[in-house]
């Protein structure tokens, strides 16, 4: 049938080319339908109070009026110490996450761990670490260790394990087999194969992942104080609860500055060293 269609010139000209198979098209239409249905259903049942929307412009003006002038005196009093604490939480949390994620990443890489059961366990650890938000981790650790920077550090670390471990496992799986086989042929023990065969190959991506996660962790550790896990979020929470909007403005400005600074540091290190 199709062979005929191609060979007889009359029908070949009318042949219509389509980019996708019918199944692909059906799946796409199913997606469009699902997306529209989900949006319509959400818009219909979401609970929005229109009266609140009406005075929103007045509220925004009021917000900025209360924020100005910015209370600069709050910085040396409270915000500076909290800022330093935030940076320590993010950095120590990242280091802890790297230490925890390395064995899990090794366990999750298919070319290093030949046992499927162990890989499944590693995957489970990585997925559960990522599906719990850092604020929830912080709530849990505040309940266990009490409020303070320790809970924040552990929350950052446990949240980052999934991200770092997943990317590390992917980097390990992309390593070239040549050096590994050469080392195996000399009878090198497992630890030497990992240290001298895999480590030099994954080292650039390892530090790149660490920097990337540190940048994210600076942002995340800034909010942990809202649930009592230390850092600059504590200063923000205090100012918010007391409705000192000029102090809130200063805290937000500080967070903005440190986030931008972290991004610049990461970009510079990445272009110079890695």
């Amino acid at each position: 049938m199709t062979a005929d269609a191609i060979h007889s010139p009359g029908t070949a000209i009318r042949r219509e080319w389509q980019r996708f198979t019918p199944r692909q098209r059906l799946m796409r239409y199913a997606f469009y339908l699902l997306a529209v249905a989900a949006l319509v259903q959400s818009l219909r049942s979401i609970d929005i109070i229109p009266e609140f929307l009406e005075d929103a412009p007045a509220q925004v003006v009021d917000l900025f009026a209360r924020m100005w002038p910015i209370d600069w005196a709050y910085y040396p009093k409270t915000v500076h110490a909290a800022l330093i604490e935030t940076i320590h939480i993010a950095t120590l949390g990242t280091i802890l996450a790297l230490a925890l994620a390395t064995p899990v990443g090794l366990m999750a890489a298919v070319n290093i761990t030949p046992w499927p059961a162990l890989r499944l366990l590693a995957k489970f650890i990585l997925v559960s670490s990522r599906s719990v938000n850092s604020l929830v981790w912080a709530l849990l650790f505040v309940a266990v260790f009490g409020p303070g920077a320790l809970a924040g550090t552990l929350a950052i670390a446990f949240r980052s394990v999934g991200f770092v471990g997943k990317l590390l496992a992917e980097a390990l799986e992309e390593a070239h087999k040549g050096p590994i086989e050469a080392l195996t042929a000399t009878g090198a023990p497992w630890s030497s194969i990992v240290l001298k065969g895999y480590w030099p190959q994954v080292q650039p991506s390892f530090w790149s992942i660490a920097l990337f996660r540190w940048d994210i962790n600076i942002r995340e550790s800034a909010v942990l104080g809202l649930v009592g896990a230390g850092g600059i979020g504590t200063a923000l929470d205090d100012a918010l609860n007391l409705l000192y909007w000029d102090q809130v403005a200063l805290t937000l400005l500080t967070i903005f500055a440190v986030v931008i600074a972290a991004e610049i540091i990461v970009t510079v290190i990445r272009s110079r060293v890695l």
């Binding site: 979401i46 609970d47 929005i48 109070i49 609140f52 929307l53 929103a56 509220q59 925004v60 917000l63």
Partner: peptide, 8 residues
Amino acid sequence: KAVGFGAL
């Protein structure tokens, strides 16, 4: 603060 408590 701008639009009040709630989903919005």
